[in-house]
């Protein structure tokens, strides 16, 4: 029994670790400024956890195998305070060091403001679609009113026709952004909590009704990236999905012009 259990634990450990290293299922390549630091810190954490995992599981397997009942004499001991002190302080330093070491990614994403001149996009979640609003030529997002929010009459975000700033706002079901320019996304929700997540950006943020959460990033690769909702929002949660389209500056300007509202 001891041999089988020790073997089972060893095999489980090695197979699990192997599957982490082959990266059959892995993050897609990053496209934002957080990506490199994120992937590095992820790998660092993975390596540290991998070493601990390997040592702990194989230590367990070894103890199971080596100290199985063969009639040997038991070493009577109630413990060792020096050892306790060593592994307590070692793990404390390691774990707290790890979190502090990696916190610069968080700080960059959330403690820093978006740089001045960032492209502003307002993201709206609703059961179970997305809308994105661009300020238009006047550079200002106009008023919205809940009582005007009617998809059926083509005004899902309730743009207030009395507010001149609203009239040129561009509303789209996908989010397009220019490549290599800082973008700030203001996240709002009409109904329940949703979540805006783009794997390639290594970013994720809830859209909480009543709050205006903000994220900022710069995408460095032209392309089309999926944006699945990541916070349970109701029965259509699994299909609440849109796309992030990263375009060249010129394409982006074109795109905005093409989709501008007709009434000026």
């Amino acid at each position: 029994m001891a041999v089988v259990l020790a073997l089972a634990i060893t095999v489980i450990t090695l197979v699990s670790m192997y599957l982490f290293t082959v990266k059959t299922w892995w993050m897609p390549p990053y496209i934002s400024e957080y990506g490199q630091a994120y992937d590095q810190h992820f790998m660092l954490t993975l390596v540290i956890c991998g070493i601990i995992f390997f040592l702990a599981q194989l230590g367990l397997a070894y103890a199971i195998f080596r100290y199985r009942d063969r009639g040997q004499k038991v070493h009577y001991s109630h413990g060792n305070n020096t050892l306790e002190a060593i592994w307590t302080s070692a793990t404390a330093v390691l774990f707290i060091g790890l979190v502090l070491w990696g916190s610069h990614i968080w700080a960059r994403a959330h403690l820093q403001e978006a740089p001045a001149g960032a492209v502003q996009v307002e993201a709206w979640g609703q059961q179970f679609t997305w809308y994105f609003r661009y300020p238009g030529p006047d550079g200002r997002l106009g008023n919205t009113k809940p009582e005007l929010m009617k998809e059926s009459i083509g005004n899902p975000l309730g743009l207030d026709p009395d507010d001149p700033a609203s009239r040129d706002d561009v509303v789209m079901p996908v989010i397009a952004i220019p490549v290599n320019r800082p973008v700030e996304v203001i996240l709002r929700s009409k109904d329940v909590i949703h979540n805006f997540a783009v794997r390639e950006l290594r970013l994720k943020q809830d859209l909480v009704p009543g709050l205006e959460n903000r994220i900022h990033f710069t995408a460095s690769q032209i392309g089309r990236y999926e944006v699945p909702c990541m916070e349970l929002c109701g029965l259509g949660h699994y299909q609440m999905r849109t796309f992030l389209e990263v375009m060249s500056e010129a394409d982006f300007e074109n795109w905005l012009r093409e989709n501008a509202p007709e009434t000026q």
């Binding site: 994120y38 810190h41 599981q57 367990l60 979190v99 916190s103 990614i105 968080w106 970013l203 994720k204």
Partner: peptide
């Protein structure tokens, strides 16, 4: 041990971003 270690990832806000 296995379940605890993945907590080291999730407990870090930086990694929780993904």
């Amino acid at each position: 041990v296995t379940g605890g270690l993945s907590g080291l990832f999730l407990g870090q806000p930086s990694l929780d971003l993904y």
